[in-house]
Amino acid sequence: MADAERQAWQKGLRERAFRLLARREHSRKELASKLLTPRNSPSKHKIQPPPEDLSHQEIQDEIEQLLNKLEANDLLSDERFAETLTRQYLRKGKGLLALQQAYQEHQLDSEITRPLLDWLAPLWEEQVWRVRIKRFGDQPPLDQKEAAKMQRFLASRGFTPEQICKVVFS
């Protein structure tokens, strides 16, 4: 019975991984976290708990094996996830610091993120100007209070102090 229970749990784990990946790209860390601590959805897809005889380490090992298989079949890719995340942050008007923080949160390897950041380097000035103009228009700040408001807003979007000073005070 324990073997059948384990196989049913493994099948459910695979199905959950497929459902998550069908919706959007995930980083390896993010998918592992969702598989390790699943939340049941109100839908028909109830998640079967792991067999009671499995230790926490054995559960983690099973998830790692599943992630390795997904990567081997190109269903899970940190490279694709990083590219998707980068495009998403650019569309949202986020800056370099916000993007770097997101890369760290998802534990993306610098071998993956460094080429993306190098490619983006010439685009940050245009990005910060676009965000500033969209929010505040293209007129210079009227006073110190408005300049401070611009600086706080741009900093909250993840732009560097140098980028902010360039667009607020030029």
Score class of each variant (00 low, 15 high):
123 L>K: 12
90 L>Q: 12
34 K>F: 15
33 S>P: 03
70 L>C: 04
3 D>L: 09
133 I>W: 14
34 K>Q: 15
168 V>L: 05
43 S>L: 12
13 L>T: 01
71 E>A: 08
54 L>I: 05
20 L>A: 05
29 K>A: 14
43 S>Q: 08
122 P>L: 11
92 K>A: 12
132 R>H: 02
165 C>N: 12
15 E>Y: 13
127 Q>N: 01
44 K>I: 05
135 R>S: 02
66 L>S: 06
16 R>W: 01
10 Q>M: 10
100 Q>R: 14
38 P>F: 14
134 K>E: 15
24 R>I: 06
69 K>W: 12
74 D>P: 03
17 A>F: 07
81 F>E: 01
63 I>M: 06
72 A>R: 14
78 D>G: 01
119 W>K: 13
161 P>C: 09
69 K>C: 06
24 R>G: 06
60 Q>M: 14
106 H>Y: 11
85 L>W: 00
12 G>W: 07
11 K>H: 09
61 D>W: 15
131 V>E: 05
38 P>W: 14
33 S>E: 14
78 D>V: 01
157 R>T: 05
27 S>E: 03
111 E>Q: 11
63 I>R: 02
37 T>A: 08
67 L>E: 05
143 D>S: 10
170 S>M: 11
45 H>W: 12
84 T>Y: 15
106 H>N: 10
65 Q>N: 13
130 R>G: 00
134 K>W: 10
92 K>G: 04
137 G>K: 03
162 E>L: 13
16 R>I: 00
126 E>Q: 10
66 L>R: 13
95 G>Q: 02
15 E>W: 15
8 A>P: 04
169 F>E: 12
7 Q>N: 09
104 Q>R: 03
42 P>F: 15
5 E>Q: 13
25 E>V: 04
43 S>A: 11
165 C>S: 11
93 G>C: 04
113 T>L: 08
14 R>E: 10
79 E>V: 10
57 Q>T: 07
144 Q>V: 06
12 G>M: 08
98 A>R: 00
163 Q>A: 09
51 P>I: 07
158 G>E: 01
2 A>T: 04
6 R>G: 04
75 L>N: 05
86 T>R: 02
160 T>G: 05
115 P>K: 13
29 K>H: 14
87 R>L: 15
158 G>P: 00
163 Q>G: 08
65 Q>F: 15
126 E>D: 12
114 R>W: 15
97 L>R: 00
168 V>K: 02
6 R>S: 06
102 A>S: 02
44 K>H: 08
112 I>M: 05
59 I>T: 04
66 L>M: 10
104 Q>L: 02
120 L>W: 01
6 R>Q: 09
121 A>S: 11
33 S>I: 07
101 Q>Y: 13
94 K>P: 00
1 M>N: 10
22 A>W: 15
87 R>V: 07
107 Q>Y: 12
48 Q>D: 07
162 E>S: 08
110 S>M: 10
136 F>V: 03
64 E>G: 09
1 M>L: 10
106 H>Q: 10
23 R>N: 07
47 I>D: 07
86 T>E: 02
36 L>P: 00
93 G>A: 05
95 G>M: 03
151 Q>E: 15
83 E>I: 04
19 R>F: 11
110 S>D: 10
46 K>T: 06
114 R>I: 05
144 Q>T: 05
96 L>R: 14
91 R>W: 15
27 S>C: 07
100 Q>W: 09
139 Q>P: 01
49 P>R: 13
114 R>K: 12
51 P>M: 09
30 E>P: 00
141 P>T: 01
116 L>N: 00
143 D>F: 14
111 E>Y: 15
